[in-house]
């Protein structure tokens, strides 16, 4: 599944990084601690978080993640969105909670 397909199926908002929507999604990781994501997320995963600042994109780029989904209706900081465009890593959003969007994504990936 590509990030674009995931956007359609989960009805996600695309804030930035559209050029990266062809990235392949291999799985997901849920955490709000950046150091935890640094240590434990794997390449190609979608990161689900409520953090909205620029460092999120630095970590996403370091770990070569497929996309980042901001939960609970959070919007990215301006410089985070700019960084996402630079790195071509989509920054996405949902009004759902981390629990709900994770459940839906898990079903999509593992069905």
């Amino acid at each position: 599944m590509t990030a674009a397909e995931m956007v359609n199926k989960l009805d996600l908002q695309v804030f930035s990084g559209e050029n990266g929507l062809d990235r392949e999604v291999s799985g997901g990781y849920v955490s709000d601690l950046l150091s935890d994501v640094m240590g434990n997320a794997d390449e190609g995963q979608v990161w689900i978080t409520l953090q909205t600042h620029k460092n999120v994109m630095a970590i996403a780029s370091l770990k070569e993640l497929a996309a980042v989904i901001l939960v609970n209706g959070h919007k990215p900081d301006e410089d985070a969105a700019a960084q996402s465009n630079e790195e071509d890593i989509p920054l996405l959003g949902t009004p759902l909670s981390a629990f709900d969007i994770t459940g839906k994504l898990y079903e999509l990936i593992h069905k």
Binding site: S35, M38, G39, A58, S61, L62
Partner: peptide, 10 residues
């Protein structure tokens, strides 16, 4: 944490 720096990012 044992994470390597990527100077072009950080």
């Amino acid at each position: 944490a044992d994470v390597k720096n990527k100077p072009d990012i950080f």
